[in-house]
Amino acid sequence: MVSKTDNTVIVVDPAEALRRARQGRGYWRRVWERLRGDWGTLSVIGIILLILLAAAFAPFVATHDPMQGSILGRLKGFGYNGHILGTDETGRDLFSRIVFGARLSLITGVLPVLFALVIGGFLGVVAGYFRGFPNSVIMRGVDVLYAFPSILLAIAITGMLGSGLTNTILALTITFIPPLVRISETVTSQVRSLDFVEAARSSGARPLTIIRFHILNNMLGPVLVYTTSLISISIILAAGLSFLGLGVTPPDAEWGLMLNNLRSAIWVNPVIAALPGVMIFITSMCFNLMSDGLRQAMDVRL
């Protein structure tokens, strides 16, 4: 038995330090510790949670029926007759519509990104790990999709499939696959070239085991950071599609659609007309700021 350790560390409280050292501080714990001190990011995450909660419990949060219009009370300002944020062009309560609209806006913002993460992540890992032929096939395919600007691609797909929630999600998913394949491929091939993957290969492990044990946990951080930054783009794109009449159809509440409908009211009551736009701005901004905060906490360089 060889008993030579080279750990002569001078500490204040040996017992406490030993306890800490034995535990070991894993990556996610260090990320959390860094995040805990970052008040800006924490408050941004707080706002996002607030919006999520409001959307989830929309029937309880909303003060009025979002579909109930009123001929007399159209485009009224804040506080009119109990309508906190006023009413829209058909006299429906704007606050309630924004709360219900959050549901669709978040669904069209988050779901396509999640789907694209699963599909793009899988393709990216395959391309990055196996290189050679699979890489060529996947990456050239992605290049073709990349040739179109993302908004045009989304418009073209919904234009082809027709409007509606499912098709919006489908179109946006296809739009987000290429960037996610590319980032996953880049990160995977970076990780793959590190010595610990060579070491794992030289212990006789099969590719699937190596990907599970050594690739996924190392690529997750950077890919996650990038993914959260895509959510804000997705929200804006979905709103844009609805605005153009290619996304969610009336009378459903969705921020982009609401913005379109209120467009003509810009001369009557500009504050009310801008409200859905403000919500789109705040939400996508928050996702963007959260992404930046996570990037710092995870110490990721993209």
């Binding site: 070991g24 894993g26 990556y27 610990f196 044990f213 050594h214 946990n217 190392n218």
Partner: peptide, 9 residues
């Protein structure tokens, strides 16, 4: 350094 997976104990 690079021959140990930083995410694993």
């Amino acid at each position: 350094y690079s021959s140990l997976n930083p995410r694993l104990p």
